[in-house]
Write a protein that binds this DNA or RNA. Sequence first.
DNA 1: TATTGTTATACTCTATAACTATA
DNA 2: TATAGTTATAGAGTATAACAATA
Lengths: 157, 157
Amino acid sequence: MPARQQKVESIGVPAADLVDALAQTAFTTMGALTKIASDNDLSLTQLRVLAILRDRRLRMSDLVGYLGLEKSTLTGLIARAEARGLVTRLANPKDKRVIDVVLTPEGHVLAEQLARDLASHLNPLVSSLDGGEQKTLCVLLTKSLQPAPGGARPLAG
Amino acid sequence: MPARQQKVESIGVPAADLVDALAQTAFTTMGALTKIASDNDLSLTQLRVLAILRDRRLRMSDLVGYLGLEKSTLTGLIARAEARGLVTRLANPKDKRVIDVVLTPEGHVLAEQLARDLASHLNPLVSSLDGGEQKTLCVLLTKSLQPAPGGARPLAG
DNA sequence: TATTGTTATACTCTATAACTATA
DNA sequence: TATAGTTATAGAGTATAACAATA
């Protein structure tokens, strides 16, 4: 909407190469995430649940917003995670309609492990860049990418 | 909170911020892809099939390799795509066991449209970068990211 | 015997619609 | 009436195992 954006488009269309590189980045990173999830017998969605709940207690309806799913979908998702001992459903003291969800200690341990796994999978990819390049890449990615609709933390988008 | 990593490379630890930025990039881009797929009544996997077949005729077993799925999974996936008129199964003249898959004209039109949709979704994200920054970002991403296991083209990984 | 692909089966993920309980 | 969550149902995506046809 700012004039600046129009200007950029009229000067030069963002290179198709960049779109391709972003898409490739996405698939490579998602591939790592999918593998990490699979190695831990988790779906990508369940991995996201753990990441989102890593430092938060949320209502079912909040999770629906973070994940972009239907509430009925979340019921089964959380039920399976609870059956595995990864999360707990708690009554919300202020509103009896509400169910809060938190990680169990076991779920928290797993969430921390998953975060380390992700770092160890992605580190090799960027290790071909020197320190300055890594810094630049980080700055440009941060500058360009808006927060995902619903989450700011890495796995929460 | 920054869990200490086992091996701190002597070169320098890739900043956790960069790992986060890459993960965020992945989720943002995948979000765009998921929306594009959804808007066209496609799953993400079906979208990938169309992208992979955009300029290629492949065997079922090749697609299995590109997608990282089981062959039995692909049978249903291609059956549904064929029922929608997006792909065609063809006998391979050299090996009667093999089934080749190609896009129908309709499938090809859709694949081209999806590629344009992706560009239009991602362009706004990088429009906050000036031309030089976009170029730099493209170079750094290309330099750092290895080809996904099975595909070099954007949606093919 | 090995390979290519399909079929049978089962589970997860997902959405829509109807439902219960609470606000 | 409106909101939060569950249940019922259905379809897609996925894997494992067994199978048929071909090499």
